[in-house]
Amino acid sequence: HAATELTPEQAAALKPYDRIVITGRFNAIGDAVSAVSRRADEEGAASFYVVDTSEFGNSGNWRVVADVYKA
C-alpha cells in the first residue's frame, strides 16, 4: 500500500519520525508527490507531508522535502 499524503492540519497533529529529500525532474507537482509517496513507502512510512518544493536553477530539476510519519 502506498503512503498517503496528509493535509496541513493532519501533519500538524502528528510528529514526523524522519524527513526525506528527493531531487529529480518532475513535469508537475503531482509527479513529485508520487515520487515522495514511493520513497516514503519504501521507508515503511504510513503517510507523508510535503514541507517544501524548490526548483534548482532553470534546469527543470526539483528538490522536494517531506516529513514522513509511521501511523
Rank of each mutant, 00 (worst) to 15 (best):
A2Y: 14
R25C: 10
V68L: 15
R63I: 14
G57H: 08
E42C: 12
P16C: 07
V65Q: 02
P16V: 03
G44Q: 04
Q10G: 06
T53G: 06
D52S: 15
V51K: 02
E42R: 09
A11P: 02
S34T: 12
A66P: 00
E55G: 06
A35M: 08
V21L: 03
H1D: 07
A71P: 11
L14S: 09
K15F: 08
P8K: 15
R63F: 08
F48C: 03
Q10T: 04
Y17K: 01
E42T: 06
G24Q: 02
T53Y: 15
V21H: 04
R38W: 06
A71E: 13
N27D: 11
H1Y: 12
Y69L: 01
T7G: 06
G60D: 06
A40T: 04
T4G: 06
W62P: 00
N27I: 09
K15L: 09
R63D: 02
L14R: 10
V51F: 04
T23K: 06
G60T: 05
E42F: 09
G44W: 04
R63C: 12
E5V: 06
A12I: 09
V65D: 02
D18N: 14
K70A: 10
S59C: 09
R25Q: 12
R38S: 09
T7M: 05
V68M: 12
N58P: 13
G57P: 08
P8E: 12
N58R: 08
E43F: 14
E55C: 08
A2W: 11
F26L: 02
E5D: 04
V65Y: 05
V65I: 12
Y69F: 11
V36S: 02
S59T: 12
V64E: 02
D41E: 14
A11T: 04
G57E: 10
P8D: 08
R19K: 03
T23M: 10
A32M: 14
Y17Q: 01
T23Y: 15
W62V: 06
V64N: 02
R63H: 08
V33W: 10
R63Y: 11
I29V: 12
V64H: 00
S37P: 04
S37Y: 05
E43M: 15
I22Q: 01
A3E: 01
V36A: 08
V33E: 05
A40C: 13
E55P: 10
S37N: 09
A45F: 15
F26T: 00
D52W: 11
E43D: 11
S34I: 14
A71M: 13
A40R: 02
E42D: 09
K70L: 09
R19Y: 06
P16H: 03
G24E: 01
I20C: 04
H1T: 10
A40Y: 03
V33F: 10
A28S: 15
V64Q: 00
D18I: 10
L14M: 14
T23E: 13
I20Q: 00
I22Y: 01
P16G: 01
Y69Q: 00
Y69T: 00
A28T: 15
Y69H: 02
K70V: 09
K70R: 11
V21C: 12
S47R: 04
V51E: 00
E9T: 09
Y17N: 02
G30D: 12
V50H: 00
N58E: 14
S47C: 14
A28C: 13
L6W: 01
S47M: 13
S37E: 06
A40H: 01
V68W: 04
H1Q: 11
G44K: 06
L6H: 03
F48H: 02
V65F: 05
G30N: 10
P8I: 10
A2C: 14
G30L: 11
K70G: 09
E43L: 15
F48Y: 08
A45R: 00
N58G: 13
R19V: 04
A66E: 02
A35K: 03
I29Y: 14
E55S: 10
A13K: 14
H1V: 10
A35F: 07
F26P: 01
V36L: 10
A32L: 12
T7Q: 05
L6F: 04
K15Q: 12
T7I: 05
A28E: 12
Y17S: 04
G24W: 04
R38M: 10
V64C: 05
N61K: 09
R25D: 06
E5P: 09
D52A: 12
E9R: 07
A12P: 02
F48P: 03
I20K: 00
S37T: 07
G57L: 06
T23D: 05
A32N: 00
A13R: 14
A11W: 05
I29Q: 08
N27K: 10
A46V: 12
D52N: 12
R39N: 03
L14T: 06
A71Q: 13
F26G: 02
L6E: 02
V65G: 03
Q10H: 04
E43P: 01
A12M: 11
Y17R: 01
E42M: 11
S47N: 06
D52R: 06
D31M: 07
H1M: 08
A12S: 11
Y49P: 01
G57K: 07
N27T: 11
A28F: 09
N27A: 12
K70D: 06
K70W: 08
